[in-house]
Amino acid sequence: MSELSVDHLLGIKYLKPEDIDLIFKTADHFKEVINRPIKKVPSLRDITIANLFFENSTRTRLSFELAEKRLSADVINFSSASSSVKKGETLIDTVNNILAMKVDMVVMRHPNPGAGIFLSKHVDASIVNAGDGTHEHPTQALLDSYSIRERLGEVKGKKIVIVGDIMHSRVALSNIFALKLQGAEVKVCGPKTLIPKHIESLGVKVETNLIKALEWCDVANMLRVQNERMEISYFPSTREYTQQFGLNKKILDSLNKEIVVMHPGPINRGVEITSDVADSNQAIILDQVQNGVAIRMAVIYLLASKINR
């Protein structure tokens, strides 16, 4: 396969396994590029990309911007924590105004699930979903799988547990789709109040005991507790959360095997994982960040190659 089966990256659920293979192969190449002294290729000199962030983001925005610049695309940035609707302008109008300035691709983060899909139907540009509410965060899931593949050789057959706030997490949902698509086994672990009631319909198992989950897994992906997405409190205190679902070095060392620890960032040190875990050899958190640039370069490069230029 030489091109993606989709024209937009709206979610992992719209991809085929071959798409993921292609993205990973392309990312391998770009990973080599970004470790060269001259970290840049001229591939997208004729492409203009708008990064539209309707929700706060630091690392994802920087990672996308860096990926775009390393491909030599022209980049414009738009950040607004308050949604466009609140300002009176609709999302379609905002984006069409930007597209009128001859933009080819839109990378969008938005607080509403399905916002990228909605946009892809109403505007004429290639859309990359950089996180849409509690729906998907496809590039994060791709970089997570890529990092697992890098550390463990392959994703197929591996046992991955996703720990934490599953209900409010687009990272969890995209990871579940991506891991299942590649043939991994997936469990989710967290307080029942933060696990969607019907999550097992996605082919994952629920484990509410962290130690049991860790003893089972090859990889633990420790999610951040998303207080900003909670309208009520789903657990009594952070302290209690950490007592039950926080990963510390003592637990890690008590396991009879060496598991890989991941975190999509930003870390609440001492809450989901302690500093000694985050900084240990078993953690691949910074590898994830570096791979994020390569994966985003691959996604943007492959989507741009489908644009009529």
Partner: peptide
């Protein structure tokens, strides 16, 4: 803050049920 029926589809779409 549910928007649609809570079930397999709301889970799949990340929409509050």
């Amino acid at each position: 803050n549910g928007l649609v029926n809570e079930g397999i589809n709301s889970t799949y779409l990340g929409l509050k049920g």
